[in-house]
């Protein structure tokens, strides 16, 4: 043993980066998510602007172009879950934790490389979707997607993937974690809406992870349901992400793999 050999966070992150990019499924997932984002943007905008007199505005163009981001969010959410449950399923987690017995740096490193690999992919896909959306506007008309909405649309799936990673660490079994993810993030908010009294429902539902993530790229025009403004939305998703990862990290530390 030489003094040079010791565990550092940068090394754990480097290791996790290598582990992520050596899996074919990583590339397949990111490519699929990108194709769906761009494909849906093209299909939806073509459909809308086939009708004469369709609204041409930043709000409409942004909503139409980034409608497919919800699908990307689900795909990346599962991607985040699998980053950790895949290790439990294969038994690799024991080797990983034998190498890094403090465990929590592993989860943090996974979060870092998830962002490093995921955000460029979603940003490229959303930028391509934006260009396609603009190109499909009716001849002679013009509208722009705000840069904030572009960045928000790219960040939203990554944020949900990080929450997925936290849930994966918490639950550990792939199927169970996906079930929890779908129930807690997608089904529960939909049930909350009718279950709570009117204005209270809106106040609560605004802050659930998916709604806050959507608010990152929504261009508001005074819908009956008011989404969070970008700033509070960013704060809200950050809190959810930190909570999910902290809970997952605590569970990693406490329970034997």
């Amino acid at each position: 043993m030489t003094a040079a050999h010791r565990v550092t966070f940068a090394r754990v992150a480097r290791a996790e980066w290598g582990k992520l990019i050596t899996l074919r499924s990583t590339w397949a997932t990111l490519a699929t998510a990108a194709l769906i984002t761009v494909g849906l943007a093209v299909a939806i905008n073509i459909n809308v602007y086939r009708t004469a007199g369709a609204e041409v505005s930043p709000r409409a163009l942004t909503a139409q172009t980034f409608l497919g981001v919800d699908v990307t969010s689900l795909i990346l959410g599962v991607f985040g879950i699998l980053m950790i449950t895949g290790e439990y399923g294969s038994g690799l987690i024991r080797a990983t934790f034998a190498a890094v017995p403090r465990r929590t740096p592993v989860l943090l490193a996974k979060a870092v490389v998830l962002v490093a690999a995921g955000f460029p992919a979603t940003l490229a896909a959303c930028a391509a979707a934006m260009l396609a959306g603009r190109a499909l506007l009716p001849a002679g008309q013009h509208a722009d997607i705000p840069t904030r909405a572009l960045l928000g649309a790219a960040a939203a799936p990554v944020v949900l993937a990080l929450i997925g990673l936290g849930i994966g660490a918490l639950v550990r079994h792939t199927a169970a974690a996906i079930t929890v993810y779908v129930l807690a993030l997608l089904v529960l908010p939909a049930i909350l809406q009718p279950a709570l009294p009117g204005h209270l429902a809106d106040d609560v539902v605004r802050y659930v992870p998916v709604a806050a993530a959507q608010a990152l790229y929504a261009v508001d025009t005074g819908n009956p349901f008011r989404m969070l403004a970008p700033g509070p939305a960013l704060l809200t998703v950050t809190v959810w992400t930190v909570l999910a990862l902290a809970a997952g990290g605590a569970m990693l530390w406490r329970r034997d793999p």
Partner: peptide
């Protein structure tokens, strides 16, 4: 304790 999708070398490099 190995992910089936990685090669032996990639697995060891990860550790």
């Amino acid at each position: 304790a190995v992910h089936r999708g990685r090669t032996a070398r990639q697995h060891l490099l990860g550790l």
